[in-house]
Simulated scan of single mutants.
Amino acid sequence: MKPPAPGAFAGMTYAVIAMACFAVLDTTNKFLIASVPLLMVLWFRYTFQAVATTAVMWPRRGLRMFHTASFKLQMLRGLLLLICSVLGFASLQRMPVAEFSAIAMLTPLAVTFLARFVMKEHVSRWRWLFVMGGLGGALLIVRPGGSMDTSAAWLPLTMVVAYASFQTLTSYMAKTESPVTMHIYTGWVGFAIASVLVLSAWTTDLTRTQWLLMCLIGFAGTLGHYLLIVAFSKAPAANVTPFLYSSIGFATLGGWWVFGDVPDRIAMVGMLLIALCGLGAGWLTQRENQKAQRV
């Protein structure tokens, strides 16, 4: 097995920092939406991303960063990510951060379903085994009598389906579209739709701390997505993907530190099973890529 290329270590580091940013995002979200309307937080998160990303990239690219050959697909991709955000925010209102993060990491496994039934790709038995194992881990987390409200389990699971669709579309568009352009469009599409939705929940009756926390959410989300783009540009996906599961550890730490939430033993087993199946799927992808290169 070949050792990772020098740039791969930078990619892995960026991926871990990105996961830490997302843990900060989710933990702060859960804390803030207990006192601030969900749609208000959602609007600010996309406003920050759209404005900050555009401000950073404008001196380098100007209007060229909006040039795209797939305008309709950019709109669809932005809508899918907004749906993921709404479902994610709603999930965090009803469940601990660690359990939410673990279920969210089912996404790479859900992509397998789309690859088989939508993209008509061949899926090996081992890959199906990892998918089934990941779903089993999710069932251990959302089981009746566990530490979360099982009536809300459909929220994160639906989010996983939406995010898997988002990732599949991203993979398809990445062949012709710039990552920066896609990032710009997700921000502005989310901002445009959230600006309409927020009208029913708009309020300026917020404390300075609440405004600062919304800035933290915007910053963490924007930085996390940017670092993830950089990570995949520095290293092959097979090297980066295993480090995405560090998000479960960061989320568990954040949930314990801020809310005192500690997953019970069965939920911990489920989280570990999801991580192991995800890592197994990543290892299988790397092995398949190595075989393809030898042919």
Score class of each variant (00 low, 15 high):
residue 4 P to D: 04
residue 4 P to I: 09
residue 5 A to T: 03
residue 7 G to I: 14
residue 11 G to P: 01
residue 14 Y to G: 04
residue 14 Y to H: 09
residue 15 A to L: 01
residue 18 A to R: 07
residue 21 C to N: 12
residue 22 F to M: 10
residue 22 F to S: 10
residue 23 A to Y: 06
residue 25 L to V: 05
residue 26 D to T: 12
residue 29 N to W: 08
residue 34 A to K: 07
residue 43 W to D: 11
residue 48 F to D: 09
residue 51 V to R: 00
residue 52 A to G: 06
residue 52 A to K: 08
residue 58 W to E: 05
residue 66 F to T: 04
residue 68 T to Q: 09
residue 70 S to Q: 15
residue 72 K to C: 10
residue 74 Q to P: 02
residue 74 Q to Y: 02
residue 74 Q to W: 01
residue 74 Q to D: 05
residue 76 L to G: 13
residue 79 L to V: 14
residue 79 L to Q: 11
residue 79 L to N: 10
residue 83 I to D: 07
residue 83 I to N: 08
residue 83 I to Q: 06
residue 83 I to W: 01
residue 85 S to N: 14
residue 87 L to C: 13
residue 87 L to Y: 06
residue 89 F to Y: 12
residue 94 R to V: 07
residue 95 M to Y: 05
residue 95 M to W: 07
residue 95 M to C: 11
residue 98 A to L: 09
residue 105 M to L: 15
residue 108 P to A: 12
residue 113 F to G: 14
residue 113 F to H: 09
residue 114 L to H: 01
residue 114 L to I: 15
residue 118 V to M: 00
residue 118 V to H: 01
residue 122 H to Y: 14
residue 124 S to T: 15
residue 125 R to K: 07
residue 126 W to R: 10
residue 133 G to Q: 04
residue 142 V to C: 13
residue 143 R to Q: 07
residue 145 G to Q: 13
residue 146 G to T: 06
residue 148 M to E: 14
residue 150 T to E: 14
residue 152 A to V: 04
residue 154 W to V: 05
residue 154 W to P: 02
residue 155 L to Y: 07
residue 155 L to T: 08
residue 160 V to K: 00
residue 161 V to M: 11
residue 164 A to G: 03
residue 170 T to S: 14
residue 172 Y to G: 00
residue 175 K to L: 09
residue 175 K to Y: 01
residue 177 E to G: 02
residue 179 P to W: 10
residue 181 T to F: 01
residue 184 I to A: 11
residue 185 Y to W: 14
residue 195 S to Q: 09
residue 195 S to R: 05
residue 195 S to G: 11
residue 197 L to K: 06
residue 203 T to D: 12
residue 205 D to I: 03
residue 211 W to T: 12
residue 213 L to Q: 14
residue 216 L to I: 00
residue 229 I to A: 08
residue 232 F to K: 03
residue 233 S to L: 05
residue 234 K to N: 12
residue 235 A to C: 03
residue 236 P to C: 09
residue 236 P to E: 15
residue 240 V to R: 02
residue 241 T to W: 00
residue 243 F to D: 05
residue 244 L to S: 12
residue 251 A to Y: 00
residue 252 T to Y: 02
residue 252 T to P: 08
residue 254 G to Y: 02
residue 261 D to S: 01
residue 264 D to K: 01
residue 268 M to V: 12
residue 271 M to S: 10
residue 272 L to Y: 01
residue 284 L to D: 15
residue 284 L to P: 00
residue 285 T to Q: 15
residue 286 Q to T: 11
residue 288 E to W: 02
residue 290 Q to A: 13
residue 293 Q to C: 06
